[in-house]
């Protein structure tokens, strides 16, 4: 825990861009930090290069052709693959004993509901998806996160129907939960069209609304803090300023080909 962090605070780190394994290591450290802090902690991550993150058990060989050649990392969390680089990646960790850590859906809905409120304040008709996931019907799920729909995903209306703009996935550890969330801001031109999805800024622009990413993120974090009844506490440095050697060691697991190729 930061020396400045009070128990009623919600510490937030804005990290500088790093490779995928370091981001994964930092999120493992974040889980331990949530336990030390006794409540939610948040890390806003950035990526040093376009990176494909796979869900914990996605089959490596099944990576779509449009995505081959990208830097690759396997997450410890579930869900579908994400192309990072033009998204806003937000990780939140909470102790299992915290009300948000007790059920899978609760944490999902609290974090995603805060974004829905922000977007609605900007005249974007965002909502939480509530229909059953595709997998519940027995069909195989799409490989990419933003082609999937599960309850709690944030979707926005488009002329063609809806677009998913925020998805998350959790790793539920014995004493803490880490939730990785990806808010797709604009389409990632590093990938070919079949794997490219419109981001929320583009959907909003088509509806005549201009969104500023800093403003949306700040309001989203404030909304999460309000829902948690905690005071946002922006940390002055990166997570590795505070725990660099630990994060470097944790990142080693995610660099290991045995982890990346586990399935």
């Amino acid at each position: 825990m930061s020396e400045r962090s009070a128990p009623e605070s919600l510490p937030v780190w804005f990290d500088t861009p790093v490779p995928g394994p370091v981001n994964m290591g930092a999120d493992e450290w974040l889980a331990a930090e949530a336990l030390r802090h006794g409540g939610p902690v948040i890390r806003v991550a950035r990526w040093s290069e376009p990176t494909l993150s796979l869900g914990a058990f996605q089959v490596r060989r099944a990576v779509p052709d449009a995505l081959r050649g990208l830097a690759l990392v396997r997450r410890p969390s579930g869900g579908g693959a994400i192309v990072h680089g033009t998204d806003l990646t937000v990780a939140i960790a909470v102790p299992r004993s915290h009300p948000w850590g007790e059920s899978v859906q609760r944490l999902y809905d609290e974090v995603h509901g805060a974004l829905v409120a922000v977007l609605r304040g900007h005249a974007i008709a965002a909502r939480l998806h509530r229909d059953a996931p595709v997998s519940a019907s027995g069909a195989e799920e799409p490989y990419l996160c933003f082609d999937r729909r599960s309850p709690g995903d944030v979707v926005v209306p488009t002329p063609a129907g809806t677009a998913k703009i925020l998805g998350s996935a959790q790793r539920r550890l014995q004493a803490a939960v880490v939730q990785h969330g990806s808010l797709l801001w604009v389409a990632n031109m590093a990938v070919a069209a079949p794997a490219r999805h419109a981001g929320v800024a583009e959907v909003a622009r088509a509806a005549g609304v201009a969104l500023a990413s800093d403003e949306i993120v700040d309001a989203w974090l404030a909304g999460i803090a309000a829902a948690a009844r905690r005071r946002l506490e922006m940390q002055s440095g990166c997570t590795w300023d505070q725990a660099g050697p630990v994060i470097t060691e944790l990142a080693g697991r995610f660099r290991d080909p045995a982890w990346t190729e586990r399935r």
Binding site: G55, G78, R172
Partner: peptide, 30 residues
Amino acid sequence: TDLVFMQLPKVGTRVEAGQSFGEIESVKAV
């Protein structure tokens, strides 16, 4: 909630009380 995958240990694996012996994935969580 909706379970999608499970990874189990092999016969002969040594397990320790309180330590992970397998993983289970649902639509949103591992």
